[in-house]
Amino acid sequence: MSALIQVKNLSKSYWREKFEIPVLNNISLNIDAGEFLGLMGPSGSGKTTLLNMIAGIDKPSDGEVVVDGNVISGMSESQLAAWRANNVGFVFQFYNLIPVLNAFGNVELPLLLTKLSKAERQQQVETALRIVGLSDRIDHYPKQLSGGQQQRVAIARAIVTDPVILVADEPTGDLDKASAEEILALMERLNKEFEKTIVMVTHDPRAAESASIVHHLDKGDLVKEVVQ
């Protein structure tokens, strides 16, 4: 059986004026369903860029990304938008919650793109918030929540549509140690209990311990693979 996510000979470069800046060089990588993959490496090594390509919010200059048999690197913008809505949950370093919506409203957002009724949406939002342990904060606004709590709301938003893949870009990067531990425990649980395939970028060696496999990037090259 082939891997859920296949990255094949992927290269990416940016153009600044007339100069081509290579960011990723001919990367190949397979991620199996149910894996918890960590991406580490120095700042500027291309971690975020690679993650974005896997999540379908950026496109390679060369090579392809295949997820569950779909060549997502070849999709149009609108196909990609629909694909992301159905298959990917996003967790960001700075939470990226919408400040004018409360926890419920933020978690509900991805469901607005579905055909679910109001009652069904409500039920699913409540379930997601229960999984992250924030049932009692359902009507709190982001600014009324701690960093760790905001990140948990963001995770609830990422899982509310029950996507196949979760991508997380330094989800603990802005949190204190205790909150970071909570988030990591939650991610592990999502991986084990809910069988989410997770790709997580991190600087933090402690965070990387949660992952089952860690890939190291340096200057756009995959340099090391550690199986834990």
Binding site: A55, I57, S78, A81, A82, R84, A85, N86, F90, F92, N96, I98, L109, P110, L113, R157
Partner: peptide
């Protein structure tokens, strides 16, 4: 700007 990027990442389209 950043919020609109979030909306798009979540799958909201130009027409939304």
């Amino acid at each position: 700007t950043r919020e609109y990027a979030v909306f798009k990442a979540l799958g909201f389209t130009g027409s939304h």
